[in-house]
Every structure is written in structure tokens, then in C-alpha cells.
Design a binder for these strands. Structure first.
Length: 288
DNA sequence: CATATGTCCTGAGAGC
DNA sequence: TGCTCTCAGGACATAT
């Protein structure tokens, strides 16, 4: 479930692609039902092949490659998508490949691949993700204001309050609305509200400035710390960084997936509930 | 417009 | 052991 920290880790992990030229960018044939790849192979050839990757960036939970012709390649991992420079976890779910010019940086040297170009891969077990090539105009239309909210790591406490303050939704499902705020997903929403000592069911319009300040503070803390640990690899082992290594933040979760366990602050039992069809974990004693 | 629900997908784990 | 069923949730389409 790549959220902001996992997608940021992917971006950092593929920084070596910047400055390289795209030799080929195409779907990989696999036995599974195909993921969404747009536009047509002909358009990919016209607008991606031969272009240099000018920059790697992130918009919310998407990885963006900016090309020298100002087109963008957008990777959307959704539930199980991975952007990799290493060999994928399985060849079965390999979906898309970007072949880049040599030489590769030394840390990616693999004797078995000598003489082959550096490959940037998109792997997706469940196949809910997508890969898109957007023209500059399409890129602006896709991400213009209103389509995606400000980044969760770039907002101020007062901005947070102005985004959510009038909302009559509960705070936890509201945090998941990417049109309001980009980057927070189901796992980190529970974690940050626990640390902020805010009950997930409180309506946004009931929250006061001191509470928004705590939410802001713990949102920055949790997301930054999760980035430092290269994201969370849950028990299913799906999430990996760009070199196919596990993240480490799952060892620092305090409530997510911990129903029935003891609260680290007050020893009360952690509870699982469902809000808008998503699991929420919290401590009923110390989240007021 | 705001908020809620249904849909896609695979594989792990539960229960019998 | 081996089968069936449920569940996980990101983003979008559709419904209220």
C-alpha cells in the first residue's frame, strides 16, 4: 500500500535514472490481465523514446519522470505497484519496462546483466496500478489545482485547518481524500492520529487550533520518520524499495494492525474499527 | 456540491 | 490436507 513515504522512497531510489536516455518504454507481456498503460505504443515511441529523463519527482502517491521534451511518465502504484531498478520480486507480475542508456552506476552492477542497459521496472502483483505518458498539457490538466490537494509534507498547521475545518466528515476518512491533501493513506492516518492523541471519529469541524497543530506536528513526524526507514513492509512482504529491499518502519507502528495489543502509552487495548469501509486502529483511552 | 458506496485485483489466512 | 470464503485499500465511477 504505497503511501507518501513509500513513494518518496521509490523516487529517491531511482535517482540514478536522471540524465539517461530512454531506449525503449513499453509494456512487458505477462500472463496476468494487463494493467492500464496509456497511450498507444506508437505514442510512447514518438514522445518517450530517445528522450532524456530530466527529473524524478512525486505528486502525492505517484512517481513522476519528467522528460527532456516536457512530457511526463506517471507511475501510479495503488495497492501493490513497485518502481524498481533491481530484479523484480517475481517475473510473473512484471508489467512495464523503461530501458535506459548505459553506463549504469557501479552500485547496480550485476555480472549477469553486463552489456545490458539499465532497466527501470514497474511490477504490480494485484494489477490495480497504472503507467501513463502525458503531454505537458495533459500533465497540467491532470494535476491542476482541485484535482490533487497540497502535499502532506508541505502544509502549515493553519493551512491544514483551512482545508478541513468546514468538513463534516470524521477526521480519519477526511485525511484519506487526495483532493483535499495528497499523500496520507490508511496506514499513516491511523498512526499520526494516535500520536496526535486525536480520536479518528471526531468531525473535522469539531477540531480546534491546538488539535490541528498536533495533527500537523505528528503528520510531519510520522511521514518523515517513515521516509527515514524507507517505508513500511507489511506481513505480506509486498512493498520493497527500488532495490527490492524491505522497508523498516513496520517495526515502529504503534496502532496499525495491532488490534488486541496493548497501547504503548497507557496499556489500554488497541481497537480496530471500520470507517468508510477502511480499517482504523486507535486507543479508545488516550485518543480523545 | 459533499459524502457514501461499488469496483477492480491477487494471495494470505481463517475456518471447516 | 484441501477446499472455500473473507479481507486488504488506492483511486475512480456512480449513487444518494
Amino acid at each position: 500500500m504505497p503511501e507518501l513515504p513509500e513513494v518518496e522512497t521509490m523516487c529517491r531510489g531511482i535517482a540514478a535514472v536522471v540524465g539517461r536516455e530512454i531506449r525503449l518504454a513499453a509494456r512487458v507481456r505477462c500472463q496476468r490481465r494487463p494493467i492500464q498503460v496509456t497511450p498507444s505504443p506508437g505514442e510512447w515511441k514518438k514522445n518517450a523514446h530517445g528522450q532524456t529523463i530530466a527529473a524524478v519527482s512525486r505528486i502525492g502517491k505517484r512517481v513522476i519522470l519528467e522528460l527532456s521534451n516536457a512530457c511526463r511518465i506517471v507511475f501510479e502504484p495503488r495497492m501493490t505497484g513497485l518502481v524498481l531498478l533491481a530484479e523484480p520480486p517475481t517475473t510473473e507480475h512484471l508489467r512495464f519496462e523503461v530501458r535506459l542508456t548505459d553506463p549504469r552506476p557501479a552500485e547496480f552492477e550485476d555480472p549477469e546483466r553486463l552489456g545490458q542497459p539499465l532497466r527501470l521496472l514497474f511490477w504490480d502483483r494485484r494489477g490495480l496500478g497504472s503507467v501513463r505518458l502525458l503531454t505537458p498539457q495533459q500533465f497540467v490538466e491532470t494535476f491542476q489545482s482541485g484535482k490533487v490537494g497540497p502535499d502532506a509534507l508541505g502544509v502549515s498547521p493553519s493551512q491544514l485547518q483551512s482545508i478541513f475545518g468546514d468538513c463534516r466528515q470524521a477526521i480519519k476518512p477526511a485525511l484519506l481524500d487526495q483532493k483535499k491533501l495528497a499523500g496520507v493513506g490508511n496506514l499513516y492516518a491511523s498512526e499520526l492520529l494516535f500520536r496526535a492523541k486525536i480520536r479518528p471519529t471526531l468531525l473535522c469541524c469539531e477540531l480546534r487550533p491546538p488539535q490541528w497543530k498536533r495533527i500537523h506536528q505528528q503528520m510531519q513526524f510520522v511521514l518523515q520518520q517513515a521516509i527515514a526507514y524507507e517505508g513500511s513492509t507489511l506481513n505480506d512482504g509486498t512493498y520493497r524499495n527500488a532495490l527490492n529491499k524491505e522497508g523498516g518502519y513496520q517495526n515502529h507502528h504503534q496502532v496499525y494492525g495491532k488490534a488486541g495489543e496493548t497501547c504503548v502509552r497507557c496499556q489500554h487495548e488497541i481497537v480496530r474499527m471500520v470507517q468508510t469501509q477502511r480499517a482504523t486502529f486507535y486507543c479508545p483511552n488516550c485518543q480523545k
